[in-house]
Amino acid sequence: MSLTREQIAARIAQELQDGFYVNLGIGIPTLVANYVPEGMEVMLQSENGLLGMGQFPTEEEVDADLINAGKQTVTMATGASLFSSAESFAMIRGGHVDLTVLGAFEVDVSGNIASWMIPGKLIKGMGGAMDLVAGADNIIVTMMHADKKGNSKLLDSCTLPLTGAQCIKKVVTDLAVLEIKDGAFHLLERAPGVSVGEIIEKTAGKLVVPDDVPEMKC
């Protein structure tokens, strides 16, 4: 069975480490915050100028001056700090954020990522995604392995305009966990009940499959 969005988020949460500063993108990445392991402390960075993002506010706590990068009302966690957008991207560009999780339309075997623009469709803008992928050393891309028509989103070469070049090393999909190195996807784990054959079939880019591919624990 392919993973649900929640299961993908739970699997990514296993990559968190105690004391990590983490930036979570919009969509599945946001859900990762719900699966931080018990007893572990992580600080969430929101690129509009907040380090230490808390949970959503109660109706009484709602503050128009306190939002996240998705423009949702939020609260601050204990030990939070506030700063300008320039300071926020100094943290990001300067490599001070320990882990970045973001979605994508396509990734390829060279670690290129396309996530912001589909020619011919409405262009909304890249927001902070280009800065995040250029600045972070430790990035996890999360996406569905294939689109609704079954076309693979893991390619030899991205077809859409890039968000960043040669910057992605790890991908978690609804079918698999993969590492990108040496010009290929390397299959690390498969979703419970998903066959290696199905992953091979749905991976258009060069794929290296070891003899034993363990099932994910999520």
Binding site: E47, S84, S85, A86, S88, F89, I92, R93, I123, G125, M126, G127, G128, A129, M130, D131, G135
Partner: peptide
């Protein structure tokens, strides 16, 4: 369209 961190900088 300008990346957010680039715009800030």
């Amino acid at each position: 369209l300008t990346p957010q961190g680039t715009l800030a900088e």
